[in-house]
Design a protein around this nucleic acid. Structure first.
Lengths: 144, 144
DNA sequence: AAACAACTTTGTAATGGTTACAATGTTGGA
DNA sequence: TCCAACATTGTAACCATTACAAAGTTGTTT
């Protein structure tokens, strides 16, 4: 993903660009690691030493408000962000804490924009918790 | 729900009973309001003046660990608890903040205990966000 | 019934993530 | 170039949660 594409992406979501916004959005679009504020801050502050945590907080809030990124609250203790705003589910590994993307059930997807028991649905979230494939492998290896 | 039933419920989940644990569990089992720690604390501290917030925190963590209640993290800013541990979905109204119970999709339900893309699934969560029926009615009323 | 050990509760203090705010920096249009 | 609107920064405040040590409770053994 080029910086120019990120610029286009921001404009498409009615977000006025700035060096900080471009850097943060570009990070989200090129990393599928579902980062926290701190992860983003640490990753970018080397290249952009004046970057402030407050800016990362404000910017991410702005992105979410404009539909340019998703806020994930799978775990109580960490808020994650996702540059992929398409409808998909998430899997949180309770061992290593990693978050994986998974497809969302079609029957659930179809309820977006519809009414369910009189309530208007504007947002859908679906997530799994458990032990990921990598942790299972490591577990087996350590038993041998 | 009688206190005796609550006692049975705690024992069934291998939780040693105490006056505080009974009171908190009984609150959860008789209220479907998906309360936060603070709501539970405020509700019970009148009847039990020595109750401490720390106890509410510790007790709820104990309940969740023993599968006697669910921890809901639908919103970043508030953690809720649910005494109904059966598989069901939730609807969060972004206007009034109320949380409603909804049925969970069967196809999603069926994945519990199974493997998805190599990951073992031990927990499922599904939730909707939007505007609830009550808020829609109030909105319409205010326009007249 | 007393003594004791294990467990639970309590209140205060510490922690740490998030937000408020005022000062500084930046941008784009007149 | 100037100016107004907007964005960023860093510090301080906030507040929900947790750590901890003291006090209280329970149940068992003698």
């Amino acid at each position: 993903m080029k910086v120019k594409d990120t610029l286009t992406y921001l404009k498409a979501h009615d977000i006025k660009p700035s060096a900080q916004r471009l850097a943060i959005m570009n990070y989200l679009l090129t990393h599928s690691n579902h980062p926290t504020v701190e992860v983003i801050y640490q990753a970018l502050s080397t290249k952009m030493p004046t970057l402030s945590r407050t800016t990362v907080y404000n910017t991410l809030k702005l992105f979410v408000g404009h539909g340019a990124s998703l806020s994930l609250t799978i775990d109580d203790q960490q808020q994650s962000f996702d540059g992929d705003t398409s409808l998909h589910a998430h899997f949180l590994c309770t061992r290593c804490g990693k978050i994986y993307d998974l497809p969302m059930d079609d029957s659930f997807k179809n309820q977006l924009g519809k009414t369910v028991e009189g309530h208007i649905v504007t947002e859908l979230h679906q997530y799994y918790k458990g032990v990921c494939a990598t942790c299972i492998k490591n577990e087996i290896k350590s038993l041998k």
